[in-house]
Design a binder for these strands. Structure first.
Lengths: 193, 193, 193, 193
DNA sequence: CATGAATGAGCGTTCATTCAT
DNA sequence: CATGAATGAACGCTCATTCAT
């Protein structure tokens, strides 16, 4: 009655992550999530007022976890380049380890109604802002070139996000190597000479 | 009796693009698409056997148009770098001009049932393959460094796709400038010196 | 433009018989009947005001044809027993030759809305009345026993109708032999001695 | 909370019997059956996966009930003639008491899609086989004449089924008397002397 | 708190019927 | 007369949400 199960709420949250990531928001049935969580259908509504809220909460707690790990690890890095490398590495390792949740984060552009979408766009913009701040810092320190950081921050995230697809579809599954490839290309470019 | 209305099929296709891009697949009602196209609900089913097929056809014709323009413009370019620049430029201009359709293409990672999703992933992988081929060619010609082209092709597309978000959310709306920024960063990297 | 096709009306009627008998009333599509008749869908409505009317007219003309043959053949028979034998024989031969239409007549108890049903019940009661009259005549002539003719007329038709199922499902396909069996049993009963 | 309402499932089944028998399969609306059963539309689908299944289950449980009564009553009869008389009597009494369900069993030749029809034909053929076995037994015991039992079994059922129409349309409503009439005619025939 | 039976709004789809050509 | 493109009323079914126990 404790230990693994801890409390019903996170039990449901974990089940939701599994089901939503497999089926997507619309195809996922509340009943199935309840079954997966080994609780009654009604119990889900004790903790979450709607399917939408359940999704948001699940997404929020996943992201939070993700961002928590990120910020903790980045604090003890000096060089911005190192920090960026950490972002890439963490992102790819996160995907590798939590394919469930990752599938959702990769799908961040999902089609969902009004508030939900705007809330997710907000979340995404937060991430952009975070990276942009990092790049700005890198320019100040002379580590990075002067660039349009708003654009480059988005490119950075896009490049990292799509490179993560390799872990799903590609044969390439070594996150270490993948991180190097991504950083090398982002830092020094594709051009010869 | 001609001109604007042209034929019902493309009338519906255009309405579908507008509605699907605004509401997403699941929230879009067939009835609303019909109303938007100024035809009866039944008429939609004269031309498309299901909502799913309507979506696919709309998506297909949009993509086709996009890829058509792409391939035509790329043929008369010599340098691979120039070709890649064209890819970026066309992508961003396409977004700028067809925000409706673009919203959908940007959402390419949507959650849709079985076949639909797999079909779209296929489409995406085609694009990856196309870019990868281009990069391979660039390496052969000595224009680009030796890289893991599978990874870099994805990064390239991710960087371009996300940079396009600027056109929706950012203040930056000059595609010319945006293209330069993106290419400069991708070719020469972010690192100083 | 003449000869086989004769006129559109009967062309449609024949197609209707084929399609209705194969699919039943509800599963039959007006469009399919039109196609089968090699006319446009709209043309059907030139001759019949609704699907229901088309069905009725088709049924009516089939029954009429059936009853016409019946009455003509019965006039030149003296004995009532001979007349009843003719009824059985004609019924079974009609089934054998026009399986299409027969399938419908066998299904006379179909589920159809209000008027249609009541009209068909009327038709059936007409047949009952006809047989009842025949049996009454037979009793008057001393050929048949005194019986509750209302009941026996129905039994007679029921026995004949169901025996006709043999032609669809059973191995027995010789209508001559079948007629004898049916008449023998109806006339002399099942009981030994 | 018990007694009349018993359980929802049979509540729906009874309502279905009433509505289907009045309107037939196609004209009956699931919503109306739900209303008749005083439950929500969705509740119907808690117990039956489709309208078709609801119909089948209703039909099955009706038939089962009918055949159960039949077989129980027949066991303690010695003479085959008595058994057949019981078949007739039970059939007619069943109709008299359960006009709802009877209307359906009388309509056994209904037009319904694929499986449903074939399943009902099967059911009918079972009944034929049952009667045929009975008649065979009667012949063995010397109670009945030697006849083509496949044909006669069908005739028997047809005669009984159609005689039952009297209870719906005719003035004759005394099942006792009706049974006698039917048996007398079937056993000893219509012919004088 | 926990449950799951009951609910009904909502939507995709069909197809008889109409009518402009 | 003949046509078939266009129409929309109608219905089966799903599933998020509620609430009596």
């Amino acid at each position: 009655m404790d230990g693994i199960a801890r409390d019903k709420r996170s039990q449901i949250l974990r089940a939701a992550a599994r089901v939503f990531s497999t089926k997507g928001f619309h195809k996922a049935k509340v009943e199935e999530i309840a079954a997966e969580a080994e609780v009654g259908k009604g119990t889900v509504y004790e903790y979450f007022s709607s399917k939408k809220e359940l999704f948001q909460e699940m997404f929020k707690s996943s992201s939070m976890f993700y961002l928590d790990v990120l910020e903790r690890k980045l604090d003890n890095k000096d060089s911005v380049v190192e920090k960026l490398r950490q972002v890439v590495s963490l992102h790819l390792n996160f995907i590798e380890k939590h394919k469930d949740i990752a599938r959702i984060i990769l799908r961040e552009h999902m089609d969902l109604g009004e508030h939900l979408t705007s809330w997710m766009i907000e979340k995404q913009e937060e991430k952009v802002a975070y990276i942009q701040k990092l790049i700005d810092e890198g320019i100040d320190r002379g580590e990075l070139k002067v660039m349009d950081t708003a654009v480059v921050a988005r490119m950075f995230l896009g490049a990292v996000a799509f490179s993560g697809h390799m872990l799903f579809f590609g044969q390439e599954a070594d996150t270490e190597h993948l991180t190097e490839q991504v950083m090398e290309t982002l830092l020094n470019g594709m051009a010869q000479g």
